[in-house]
């Protein structure tokens, strides 16, 4: 399961809307070894394409050095699909199954396909889904959005009726 703060969720969706019709991409960093996505780092899509995304090679190096300095890792790698559903493509699965890709990563896919020519309007619907991808196998996981003022509290102290 991916447990993510409302503000983090909103930041990812806002980035996807802003870059539509090109694919948006980035990571959410958290303390290394944890499952806590805490710091959104929007990345430039070096491909600037509606059908492909990639982190620029120099940006990638800078990002990982920065994560390393902060004792963080990429808890989430996110990107958007702008004309198709929020499900990993064959290319997505290939990269996520690469020999240096960590299978503990949560892959978030956002689809902005149901947007009109203008995005960011009230009521437009964005799909937000999360997956684990291990050796070419995709499994979808539940996404729990935690209202930001409650984030960090133990879930056992919060009762939703």
């Amino acid at each position: 399961m991916l447990r993510i703060a409302r503000a983090t969720y909103d930041a990812i969706v806002a980035h996807a809307r802003e870059d539509h019709p090109d694919e948006a991409c980035g990571v959410v960093a958290g303390p290394e070894g944890t499952n806590r996505p805490e710091r959104v780092v929007p990345m430039l899509n070096a491909a600037r394409s509606p059908t492909f995304y990639e982190f620029d090679t120099a940006d990638l190096l800078r990002l990982y050095r920065d994560l390393d300095d902060r004792d963080e890792w990429a808890v989430v790698v996110y990107h958007s699909h702008t004309a198709t559903e929020a499900y990993p493509s064959r290319t997505d699965i290939g990269y996520a199954s690469g020999p240096a890709a960590d299978p503990r990563t949560h892959y978030v896919l956002v689809s902005t396909r149901h947007h009109g020519p203008r995005t960011g309007l009230a009521d437009d619907e964005v799909e937000f889904r999360s997956y684990r991808i291990v050796d070419g196998e995709v499994s979808e996981e539940e996404v729990e959005i935690v209202e930001t003022h409650l984030f960090g509290h133990s879930p056992t102290t919060v009762v939703y009726d």
Binding site: E23, C25, V27, M43, A47, S49, P50, T51, F52, Y53, E54, F55, L60, L61, Y64, V77, H79, H81, T82, A83, T84, P88, S89, T91, D92, G94, Y95, A96, G98, A100, A101, D102
Partner: peptide
């Protein structure tokens, strides 16, 4: 590092 890329 792992390359990070993909596409629809």
């Amino acid at each position: 590092l792992p390359a990070v890329a993909g596409g629809c």
